[in-house]
Amino acid sequence: MTDDLDLLSREGLPEALRILLADYPRTGWQAHPNFAGLVEFWLDRHMMFRRLCDALRSDAEQAVDGRLDPQAMQGRLSRYGGMLVQQLHGHHQIEDMHYFPVLVKREARLERGFEILDRDHHALDGLLERFTRSANGVLQGRTEAGAFQEEVVSFERFLNRHLEDEEELIVPVILRDGAEGLH
C-alpha cells in the first residue's frame, strides 16, 4: 500500500474501493430494509465514539477558557476517556477478528480496503496510547488542559477519517447481503 492510504495522510478511500457506495449511498442507508439491527447498532457505536471525543474536546476547551473547573474536567475525563479507550479497543478487536474476515469473503474486490482498515486499527492503537498518556498527564496534574485539547483534536481527526472510510466500505456490503453470519 502506498503512503497516501496511510490513516495519518489520506483524504479518503480510493474510488476503486468505494464501488458499492454508488449503489448504496449514505443518504439511503436508514431506509434500506437491512439497516435495522446490525448496521444501526454498529453506526450507533461509531456515533458514541464521536460523541465521546466531542465531549472530551469540549471539556478541555472549557477548562482552558476557565468555564469548567479542572477537577470537574478530570472526573469527566476519567469516565469518558476510559470509556473511549476501552470501547474502541474492543470494537476494533471484534472487527479485525470477526467482521472483516467474513465481509472480505462476501466482497473480494474490497480486500485491499479491509487491509487498509486493519492497518488503521494498528495506527489507532498508537494514537490511543498517546491519547492515554496525555489524559493520564491531566489526571495526574502534569499536563495542561490546552495540551490535552490539542491531543483530542488530533486524535478525533484521525478517528473520524477511519470511521467514515470504514462505514463507506462495510455498510454497503451488509445492506446488500444482510447481517447473517456477522452476529
Rank of each mutant, 00 (worst) to 15 (best):
L84V: 07
L88I: 04
H121C: 06
A145N: 06
H98N: 11
Q87G: 10
P101F: 04
E115M: 07
G141E: 04
H98A: 13
D96W: 02
V104K: 10
F100E: 06
L128R: 12
G90M: 11
K105G: 06
T132F: 03
Y99W: 15
R112H: 11
E111Y: 02
I116G: 02
G82A: 09
H89V: 11
H89C: 03
H122G: 07
D120I: 05
Q86C: 02
D96E: 15
M83A: 15
R119F: 09
R142Q: 13
G82T: 08
G126C: 06
T143W: 02
H92R: 12
H98Q: 13
F114Y: 13
G90Q: 14
Q140K: 14
A108T: 13
L88S: 05
A135C: 07
K105Q: 14
V102M: 06
E111S: 11
Y99S: 03
G90Y: 07
L84F: 09
Y80A: 12
G113N: 02
L124C: 02
L128I: 05
E115P: 00
G141Q: 04
F114T: 04
A145L: 07
A145F: 04
E111K: 13
T143M: 14
L110Y: 01
Y80D: 15
L139V: 10
S134H: 09
T143H: 07
N136Q: 14
G82W: 12
G113I: 00
N136E: 14
E129S: 12
L88W: 07
M97I: 11
E129D: 15
R133W: 09
G81N: 09
G137Q: 07
R106E: 07
Y80W: 09
R130A: 14
D96Q: 14
D118S: 12
Q93V: 14
L110Q: 09
K105L: 08
Q140Y: 02
Q86A: 11
E129M: 06
Y99L: 15
H121P: 05
M97S: 13
A145H: 06
T132A: 13
A135E: 05
D125Y: 05
A108F: 06
V85H: 09
D120L: 04
E107G: 03
A145P: 06
E107V: 06
R112Q: 14
E111Q: 13
H92M: 15
G137C: 07
R133C: 07
I94S: 09
D120Q: 01
L117D: 01
L117H: 00
S134T: 10
R130D: 13
H122S: 09
L110C: 03
V138L: 05
G82S: 08
E144G: 15
R112N: 00
K105N: 08
S134K: 07
L124Y: 04
L103T: 03
R130P: 00
R106L: 10
